[in-house]
Design a protein around this nucleic acid. Sequence first.
RNA 1: GGGGAUUUAGCUCAGUUGGUUAGAGCACCUGCCUUACAAGCAGGGGGUCACAAGUUCGAAUCUUGUAAUCCCCACCA
Length: 885
Amino acid sequence: MIDIEPTYKPEEYEKKWYSYWLEQNLFDAPVDPNKEPYTILMPPPNVTSQLHMGHGLGYTIQDLLIRWKRMSGFNACWLPGTDHAGIATQMMVEKQLEREGTSRKELGREAFVKHLENWKEKYGGLILDQFKTMGFSCDWSRLAYTLDEELSEAVRHVFVELFNQGLIYRNERLVNWDTVLKTAISDDEVETKEINGHLWFYRYPIEGEKDSYIKIATTRPETMLGDTAVAVNPEDERFKHLIGKQVRLPIVDRLIPIVGDDYVKSEFGTGAVKITPAHDPNDFEIGKRHNLPFLVVMNDDGSMGGDIPEKYKGMDRFKARKEILKDLKNLELFDDEKAYKHAVPHSERSKTVIEPKLSMQWYVKMKEMAQPAADAARNGEISFYPQSWQKTYLYWLDNIQDWCISRQLWWGHRIPIWYCQDCESITTGMTDPTECSHCNSKNIKQDEDVLDTWFSSWLWPLSPFGWPQDKEQKELNYFNPSDVLVTGSEIIFLWVARMVMANIKFKNRLPFKHIYFNATVVDKKGRKFSKTLGNGIDPLEVVEKHGADAVRFTAISLAPLGGRVMMEVSDFENGARFVNKLWNASRFILKYYDEKTQLKPLKDLELQAYDHWLLSEYQTVLEKVNQNLSNYRVNEAVDSMYHFVWGALCDWGLECSKGNLNENSETKDKSLSVLVYLLDGCLRLLHPVMPFITEELWQKIPVHPDLEKGASVVTAEYPVKSAKFDETQATQWATVQDLITKIRSARQTAGIPPKVDLSVSIKCENDLVDVFSNASQWIKQLAKVSTVTATTENVKLKQSLTQVGKGYEIFIPVADLIDIEAEKTRLENEKKRLGKVLMGISKKMENKSFMDRAPQDVIEQTKAQFQNISSQIDSVERNLKGLNG
RNA sequence: GGGGAUUUAGCUCAGUUGGUUAGAGCACCUGCCUUACAAGCAGGGGGUCACAAGUUCGAAUCUUGUAAUCCCCACCA
């Protein structure tokens, strides 16, 4: 007897096995030319972040795939790492400083960066430990961090390279300015939100004409301080004559021209637009077209500033909005206010309203790099799961804008550009210069800004593999391209598309072949998890309660391909139940195994019909699982495992075996040979989903002669389909199951107490007589009846419970145990139901076109069905008569 | 405004080239401590497949339209 504790206690096994795996170096994937690599790049989490359910799901899927491929014989490398996450981390630390009553300005750049590094040292490893708790099998020897020396060198290499190729340039443009974080952010970090705002109408007096005005409409009155024109459509009859004239800008008392520009839509608002070139993207373009001055009237923090009336200086932009309106009213220039719903850009990070700001920033030219990245998707070299994301990807690439890569932050890779204070030229290079490369002046100063975090992340497929330092690039050439990228669709542009571009640009090949977008985790009301709502699920809390395997199993079984997945804490009980089931099933099987047990190869055994059925189901599940995993239909793969273990192995396999296991006989060894074989297979099958419990159990089960046993289930062979059963017997057993279910049903619907002894007679077709007779031991056992007789003869039994199956009828004499009337009603209903079905079929068969045009096999099927249903109806009718007489 | 989806049992979803009486999990009802598991076993109820039209011998499945919901992209002041 192999003793297993009555309940599975995850905390007792998880740490133990994880350490064991690490000791045995089972997750490491050194370059091995004799083995085919299978690589997944882990999307690096923010270095200071904590594990949440989103990670829980996405990374569990990756671990599932990696473990599956590792067991399938691949050199599986899951590259782990973390991202310095410029904005997020700096924001976090700045908040901390604020609580401590200081600020980054007060500390100064050097001290602040030092502070951040300490912070990273302190909290940086946390999420990686959490990954270990989840059982993730990353190749920890390759752990990378975007600020590592080698990775930083790759960043610099790329910057210098692109700069030298003229693909990086500096320009003054309108950027998305975050007034809270005081930095520019890229278009992709902006989210537009519908806001219930206002459209305000007011007038500007036309210079030199008494009581003549031009009326404009705006959502942002505060920017009028920086107006340098009013624009109208040149075709607009109402305003044509005004073009070329000037208006006197109220409050600031400045003369500005009225210009004609096609951009203005006559039908919107008043048909006249105030133009603020330094604070609005459209106005910026108009400003350029008409050579208007660019007047900046706002400070970095969103307060008003510049050359404006004293009263507004330093006033917050939203307060200034109200003040301006008040002042316009006082001047009797204000006309009207209308409720107006419009899209307003917000910062993804700080959530504040984005301010378009005129400033000098660094950009990467993208068009040229985007082309091959788009082609790769068009010609199918790179494929998306779900496929529909391809369109989104292509749309973005086809309409790509240049990438603003400079950030006014201190946390990140500092831009390797030096400005000469004397000749004003620019110096860059792989090493920090000491003098200007043009005039040799020592008077040079490095750019204050750092690079966008994604400028290091986009090199993730390359830089962790020693690129570009390693001249031979053995590592990179082995692992790149990786096989699949598993990530969230929200970073398809920020990260995914850019990695494709970088990999093509610098390695002339793709970073990965497949892109799988995992579902977004939301609550039962469809809301995203958020701290403020408090609706999140902490995966670690759930792990503590149910164990990592239960969490992994549940997460995967709930997650469809793409889209959203609703989760609540109670869902994880499902996983816990399955873990418990697997534990107990194993406990049951192994209980009967002792030193006298001799496991035999399956081919040497004379198996029962139910064994063949079990083996057949097992083969089916193996095929399904491997196929579904290949298609990234992970929830379906897990679903079929669950159904095999619970519905086939436990509900039928173990139940059928019960009669055979107690005796010290050949049947016991035979049963155990099959059960241990299947259990071993199930543990391997389930291991990628539930690594801990499967390892604990697998280590305990005896070696089966048909199977190999190694040091760990981590590296055991993943089972694949290979027929080892008799299909005929498997099918016959399915009929026996059907019969057993019908007997059980008859008994329960008639309300016969379980303790009452029943005997069953079966009238059946000739070939079923043997099938049922051979199975009588199990029919008795599972249907809880004392005798079973099967015959082709008509059975004449009065007052019987009856059931009709395909090719057989069941009679259970019950004398006065049943409510005859209730039974009659049941049979009448059954007759009605079958009648309806038969009607449908006969309609089909009477339809001449159906008989003429449908394929032969469909017609045959329909005929057989007709036979079947009619004979069922006959039986029901006969049974009804039996009850009456 | 453009694009991508979704709509099947009370809930979450399968249903892979159109073809037996549309499935699963959870929830619900009933009966059971039957030699692992009451975190269990057994049985059961529940669906005009969003709506409408079309193609077809045959539609949950294909086409078109309608409605509702969700996501992404977009500079109409």
